[in-house]
């Protein structure tokens, strides 16, 4: 993977982060997720970071996930940095117009957040304030394009100069399982054309559909320009299965997996869910063009090391490097 999708030969002004180096090295990368607290608890992020340090290359800090109010992803990313876990700051178009988005992007770069994940975001309809104004001034693709332009051309959407230009690794998301399925690889291609350097996918539970998606990604040559990190996670109860199948938009759980989880005694569902997750990661490591796995653990962060260990992808090599960002937020 190259870190220069624009092909304009510009060298990065700032040091590439750990995730950027891991993707460039070609080894299987691992990312996870840190959901910020709903409350002014300064220790909440560090507690989750402690569970992940050394096991992941970077951790996403979500931006008011599912449109529920939380500590901001910006503050959460700074806390993760000081806790020694490299953050991927998520930023959505749901709550901010183009002025606020570009401002937050400059702020993130200024305070040393090395990775950003840019997305359209869930509609407020799913959140705790369905009466809120849905902003969506620009869309996720346009946000990726805007960030790449700020970094590579040193210009804002208005055309005005940003000096010095901000630097981050630009990520995005894609859902290979949502109709129109035959358009999803091309849609990712659009984001890569706009400047995305890595992508994290929706949960991969249906490997057949995902393999077809990856074949298209390879045909379009996208995997050489963009690190494809596949979303995974352990479904540890039938209630969780019900929740993700019906309440969370865009997650597809194939019948075979439902049968497998329902087929074991209630006490063993958690183990079976972990086992399925491990098997999926193992399969992913065999798929050409897959750069890594993104573990979303539904609040079971303490189980992530076990999953990774059993799947044969942990702990991270050159772990000491994980703490080099320490104290920058201080």
């Amino acid at each position: 993977m190259t870190a220069d999708p624009a092909g304009n030969g510009h060298r990065r002004a700032s040091e590439p982060g750990r995730l950027s180096r891991a993707l460039a090295s070609g080894r299987f990368v691992v990312t996870a997720e840190i959901g910020p607290p709903r409350g002014a608890d300064p220790g909440a992020i560090a507690k989750k970071a402690d569970l992940l340090r050394g096991w992941v290359d970077a951790a996403n800090v979500t931006d008011n996930q599912s449109a529920h109010v939380r500590l901001s992803s910006f503050a959460g990313s700074l806390l993760a940095l000081s806790a020694g876990v490299e953050p991927v700051m998520q930023l959505t178009c749901r709550d901010r117009n183009r002025i606020a988005l570009q401002s937050d992007l400059i702020s993130a770069a200024t305070l040393g957040i090395p990775n950003i994940l840019l997305l359209t975001g869930d509609h407020p309809r799913f959140g705790d304030h369905p009466d809120a104004k849905a902003v969506f001034d620009i869309d996720g693709v346009q946000l990726v394009w805007t960030a790449a332009t700020m970094r590579d051309q040193g210009r804002l959407l208005s055309g005005r100069r940003v000096d010095p230009a901000p630097h981050w690794l630009i990520g995005t998301v894609e859902n290979p399982f949502s109709p129109p399925i035959s358009f999803r690889a091309r849609r990712l291609g659009k984001k890569v054309a706009a400047g995305a350097e890595f992508v994290q996918t929706q949960f991969v539970f249906d490997l057949d559909v995902f393999e077809r998606f990856m074949a298209e990604v390879r045909d379009l040559g996208i995997d050489h320009r963009c690190g494809v990190i596949a979303g995974v996670g352990p479904v540890r109860s039938l209630r969780a299965l019900e929740y993700i199948s019906t309440k969370v938009p865009g997650i597809h759980v194939p019948d075979a997996m439902v049968r497998r989880l329902r087929g074991v005694p209630a006490a063993r569902v958690a183990d079976e869910g972990m086992q399925i997750c491990v098997e999926i990661i193992q399969r992913l490591t065999q798929i050409s063009g897959v750069a890594g796995a993104h573990v979303m653990a539904f609040g079971y962060e303490q189980g992530i090391p076990e999953i990774l260990e059993r799947a044969g992808v942990g702990p991270r090599p050159d772990h000491a490097a994980a703490t080099e960002g320490s104290g920058r937020a201080g």
Partner: peptide, 21 residues
């Protein structure tokens, strides 16, 4: 589109092709 997306569908389209909102 409830999100007024100009660059293609969001990831919330249901398996039957319905809008998430």
């Amino acid at each position: 589109c409830p999100k007024q997306l100009r660059n293609g569908p969001c990831g919330g389209v249901s398996p039957t092709g319905m809008c998430e909102v």
